[in-house]
Nucleic acid binder design. Sequence first.
DNA 1: GAGTAGGGATTGTTGAACAATCCTGCAAGA
DNA 2: TCTTGCAGGATTGTTCAACAATCCCTACTC
Lengths: 258, 258
Amino acid sequence: MSQNFPWWLDVSDDAEMVISQRSDDEGRQAWLRGVAADVARQDRSSSAERAADILRRSITEGALRPGAQLSEVELTEVLDVSRNTLREAFRLLTHEGLLVYKLHRGVFVPELDEQDVVDLYRLRRVLEVDVVRELADRPTELPEERLEPLEADVELAEAAALDGRWAAVGTANMRFHRHLIGLADSHRLDEITGRLLAELRLLFHVIATPQELHEPYIARNRGILELLRERKYEQAADDLQVYLLDSEQGLLKAFEAR
Amino acid sequence: MSQNFPWWLDVSDDAEMVISQRSDDEGRQAWLRGVAADVARQDRSSSAERAADILRRSITEGALRPGAQLSEVELTEVLDVSRNTLREAFRLLTHEGLLVYKLHRGVFVPELDEQDVVDLYRLRRVLEVDVVRELADRPTELPEERLEPLEADVELAEAAALDGRWAAVGTANMRFHRHLIGLADSHRLDEITGRLLAELRLLFHVIATPQELHEPYIARNRGILELLRERKYEQAADDLQVYLLDSEQGLLKAFEAR
DNA sequence: GAGTAGGGATTGTTGAACAATCCTGCAAGA
DNA sequence: TCTTGCAGGATTGTTCAACAATCCCTACTC
């Protein structure tokens, strides 16, 4: 394996850190199972998927800027895979909206504009608000522990905000919304949301001031979480609707000021 | 090019037939432009995409049944492309939900079940109903001609019903919903819908009686179209909501009786 | 300065080769 | 009879090298 990674591939994985902190007996069992599943998934994933993982992180963490072209030969050497495998990885990321193909020209990190903001937020509003609203109609009441991932995300965002790590705040906020959608137990909804949020993340990279973009929503996320705890789903849905409209306006304003 | 196509690749294209029936002067102009665009698009698409087109039709028209495995060597000969290109076509269709990969086992036409019906219809309801409801809030009123494709779809379904061509009725109904979503002018919404309807089509193939599955909705499609014409968007949205719930129930019942 | 012809770089596609994995059938043992 | 283990044959996963097609840039012509 090639060792001279370019600077933008040198990314650290924070997700596993969180898991490994659990150390009680029952926790260790769960942790071992998790690792086993992780390793199994690693083994069961193809080279293309592993390459895609690396590229995905490089893009979502902002190392590869919108508009940048990804050269096949260069990445072939860096990632140590063949061109065919690399192109399969490209296809995977294309499907997620993180890359775009231009025939005979290559793959590029897409450059999104105001219209994309409007488009993305329209979908977010419809889907997320509906998920929350539907929680009231569940045949069985939502178990308390289903909200734990949301709690963890909010806490992570709060902690990151104290240290001024605004990119991490943005990540945690994203994860909050992903977990929120997850409450619907819809495989397709999860997939669609994953793509929407990935594209949204591309938009964040054109913004100069991540603090004012992310900070206000930490408290609002907690507010929605509390409403969910109290099973006030209608109010949570209404709040979320306004929340997302505000967030859209904030992004659009940042675009204008750019 | 190999000439001994297996039976299931021998599919006719009904879409172009319909277009070519137009023969008035203005129509011919439009038709020529359409063909030119088609050819240009054809030339601008890669071999993988062309191969994917053929496979997509074979699947959506039911020639390739759910559960069927697609052999690489066989399709390599039939489609006259290399294995690498074919695999790229597989990836494309996998992303549309029309194929599933099983590592080291190959690609298969997915077999959907009742849970998928519920999942798909949940998304359809949220998205379609919202599109209709939003039409009331458009800054500029929806131009009359935007409804023409919907009118054409309904007429096509009515004509096909008279001849008892229920598969064609199903196709026309599908296209109606796709055009309905198209009124939102959202690129992402179009894409998501395209995938949802393709998967839905997969489900239709396990149904024994297509008539009672499609026939009731011809009139209801026309009903919704008329409401859109009269700009009664709220009522259209409400009707559509009930419509989709009924449709879901019909599919679930057909599943049970299978 | 505008248009155009080349040439170098990049992508699109192919075919062959080998490795890894899965499936099938058979035989040995309980 | 049923299970277990083991070939080996078939299929998929991955790589490589080569060539074709296309694009982009530059230099040239007028």
